[in-house]
């Protein structure tokens, strides 16, 4: 890939007169030797899987395999019907959709890791709700996935995207940054604005630990996906309004690396700290694995 930083991404897009999504598509085709058409088709298939996952959990509760979670997407959808949400219908829809995809994931349903399974709800929540709202065609959203992928590629290679390495900031945090930047571009923002959205979003989740109860990708992962979708909308709105990330986004990515590296192991997906080790968290663990079983060392949404 000819870009390794977000600043390079902005520069190249400006020089070549292309969007981040277009640059990613052509670079991907070059890297793999496959045609742009074939590459686009594969991403389009992924977008269809995301839409299916969004719709699966909205009207029928999807219980997780453990039985610990499920049905929250339906609760939020039903509540929206009352017309009295605090967020407003659009943001609330993104929230419900993100919850749905994460619940489908916990039920062993089909999802696309974006960038991981643990954070798979955020991008579909933002994308599918925005598509309905702005009446975009699928191709527009597929290009948005390439933009999100370009942003994630930079974050992953300069910092990390797995909770085991860098805590939840690396996983849910990265997904929010990717969704925020992509949405900014989808709504007509410049590559520079999109990259500011990434920095604004990432700053908001710095330090977030990965502390899954019972080591499972459920508590608090599912609700964090819901929150993540809403945060991405906020970051995109700020960037489109002209708000800039005073600390350049590449430097924020570096901070994520610094913070994640300093994070104790008990807060990096091992289920040995945080919410996982609260009295209730421990009780859930005991109920799940029975007496005498060891604590899980880590969950798995890498």
């Amino acid at each position: 890939m000819k870009f390794q930083t977000l600043a390079q991404l902005v520069d190249i897009c400006r020089e070549d007169g292309v969007t981040i999504g277009q640059l990613m598509l052509s670079e991907q085709a070059k890297e793999t030797g496959k045609s742009e058409e074939e590459t686009f088709r594969l991403m389009a298939d992924y977008y269809n899987i995301m839409k299916e996952a969004v719709h699966r959990g909205i009207h029928e509760p999807v219980p997780s395999r453990s039985g610990l979670t499920g049905g929250d997407a339906v609760r939020v959808t039903d509540y929206m019907g009352s017309g009295v949400t605090s967020l407003g219908a659009e943001a609330c829809t993104a929230l419900a959709y993100a919850l749905s995809v994460s619940e489908v994931n916990a039920s062993m349903g089909r999802i696309v890791a974006t960038p991981t399974a643990g954070s798979c709800g955020i991008i579909p929540g933002v994308f599918v709700s925005s598509q309905e709202r702005f009446q975009w065609d699928d191709d527009h959203l597929v290009m948005g996935l390439f933009a999100a992928g370009a942003i994630g590629y930079v974050i992953a290679n300069n910092s990390f995207i797995s909770g085991a390495e860098g805590g939840c900031q690396a996983e849910v945090g990265s997904a929010i940054g990717m969704a925020a930047g992509a949405l900014t571009e989808l709504r007509g923002g410049t590559p520079e604005q999109a990259v500011h959205a990434v920095g604004l979003a990432l700053k908001n989740s710095l330090g977030l630990i990965c502390d899954p109860v019972g080591g499972l990708v459920e508590i608090p992962c599912i609700v964090r996906n819901g929150f993540g979708a809403v945060t991405a909308l906020a970051a995109a709105d700020m960037a489109l309004a002209g708000v800039r990330s005073a600390i350049p986004s590449d430097e924020v990515v570096e901070v994520m690396l610094e913070v994640g590296t300093a994070m104790p192991a008990k807060h990096r997906e091992t289920a040995k700290g945080g919410l996982a080790q609260t009295p209730t968290g421990k009780k859930i663990l005991k109920d799940l694995y029975g007496k005498g079983s060891k604590k899980p060392k880590k969950d798995g949404n890498q």
Partner: peptide
């Protein structure tokens, strides 16, 4: 580079709950 392409970020398509 640890991650080589866009589909190592967006993807894989999978049944949940955990990529690892």
């Amino acid at each position: 580079m640890r991650f080589k392409d866009v589909f190592s970020i967006i993807g894989p398509s999978m049944v949940g709950p955990s990529s690892s």
